[in-house]
Nucleic acid binder design. Sequence first.
DNA 1: CTGTTAGCGCCTTCAG
DNA 2: CTGAAGGCGCTAACAG
Lengths: 322, 322
Amino acid sequence: MNIHDIAKIAGVSKSTVSRYLNGGSISQRTRDKIDKVVKETGYAPNQFAQSLKAKRTQMIGVIVPRLNSFASNETLLGIETYLRQQHHQTIIVNTDLDVTLEINALYSLAKNKVDGILLFATQITDEHLKAFDTIATPVILVGQSYRGLHSIVQNDYEAGLAIGEYFGKTSLSRIAYLGVGEYDKAVGIHRKNGVLEGLKHFNKVADDYETTFKLSDAKERAKQLLSAYDAVICATDNIALGVLKAAYDLDIKVPEQLSISGFGGYETTSIVTPMITTVAFPYQRTGKCAAASMLALLEGKDIPYLQRMDFQIIEKESVDIY
Amino acid sequence: MNIHDIAKIAGVSKSTVSRYLNGGSISQRTRDKIDKVVKETGYAPNQFAQSLKAKRTQMIGVIVPRLNSFASNETLLGIETYLRQQHHQTIIVNTDLDVTLEINALYSLAKNKVDGILLFATQITDEHLKAFDTIATPVILVGQSYRGLHSIVQNDYEAGLAIGEYFGKTSLSRIAYLGVGEYDKAVGIHRKNGVLEGLKHFNKVADDYETTFKLSDAKERAKQLLSAYDAVICATDNIALGVLKAAYDLDIKVPEQLSISGFGGYETTSIVTPMITTVAFPYQRTGKCAAASMLALLEGKDIPYLQRMDFQIIEKESVDIY
DNA sequence: CTGTTAGCGCCTTCAG
DNA sequence: CTGAAGGCGCTAACAG
């Protein structure tokens, strides 16, 4: 069942049907005729034939480093929801934190002629830049920023600052910061700098330790140093949960003997008892914003190169996000 | 840069290049020539032009009811990983638990000419059956089974049985089962029946209550009935977490005064303290199995109509999944 | 407002 | 083994 068949049945020409499909000017009578035939046959135009001409596929590619992280999934939810409403398809590619796969995904999505690519970046290498250059597909970075590329990021520095000041105001003085490597600019640098600066406003300092994004790594790292502190500020909620488990294993009471905080606003931090203070990032809205920015870009509109989302401190015991 | 350009540069005809691309018989010399040009230009054939003829798109559609559930995400991870390895793209459509959107998604993916559809079903209505019939695209059900349709499910009944017997063996006697509606056959019926049967083997019974999949609903429901029981078997881990929070609010000690169990093997249940006994379903493997079954189906291979995954009981405090 | 006519980029007979 | 020619389903001028 193709445009030709419909045209024949309706007694008009292919191009008239095409116009019908694409909102060209058509008399009410022929419109009704075609309408009827389309309804009866359940005809739907072949997307590939359409794409072949139109060069627009209504597909947006999304490259995510992992598919089992709260942040990714929530952001993805925001993206998919918005795109679906705007009649676009979401193609996802998971890279399992493998940079090579990430580069491949860029080329492969471009070859699939997606209209645009949303890249949940961790770091931007020369290979990335080369890929952006080679493929003619517009790319928007999510979660990291890079000069000259469209980026949507969490307000890591300000969020860090807020948490830093939050702890600054308390009477706690032996403070550790448990962060991640600086290869991740957003989390490893901006977030940390914010925290340290915030503490500084209250004439406090934190000892600076490093771990990975994995809960188990954080837990092991924490075990070595927990006894020396009465507060641990963690770079992510996941790390904070690792610290919490470590405290539990070492029989250190939270929050009586140790205060813990994270970043992210993961569901879990509100479930664990005691609750952990955290900064909630608006991941779903971030996703929506990214998707909307992409569609705007594709329509030739100007969008700012850097967009920062807002955030919110969730103090322990003060809210239940359900 | 299209097949014509390549042909011109290589000094051969379009059809020769086409054969080169599709493994037709070609002399070594011309193959080398074309090879060189393709490498130099970075030419990649237009997928849409290909699909227009070939009718195979190397794309698999996945319809999920939610994008913020551990089970969905893990299964999705399994699917995406496998498909990527097999050089297929994953298109996801989230339906937000809306049946109408689910039906739409079926038609829309078919129109997008995906090679196959993996449907995370909750219920199968007449509209579903009609859609399956109308679209010529193969569909595999994930998580629910339906007579005459290819399905991959968790072994809900046996898992329920195992948990039932697990509690049967204990000295606990005042037992509640907190489940979901029977519209969900897998969880609402099979899982429950298993539990009740397992308890029966030890001459025990459970009072049967109903809630939704939402943690907050479960929490509220639990508050009303917790005081009367010393064990609550929950249909999902999410529900179990709701019950745990309710117990916390009511100052009921877990596990001293109340035992709680769930189904799913969510990360969270191993983080909360005390840990909750749960049945771990192999979601990632389920996803991989679903994807592999689909590709097998598309190659014309025979696959069983019903495939059941295995499961594993995780007793509280006995493991740390990290 | 409508029909005719070229392609879009690729694949696939069919000759040579 | 290779080239020419037609067509996949649709869109976009260009005439009427």
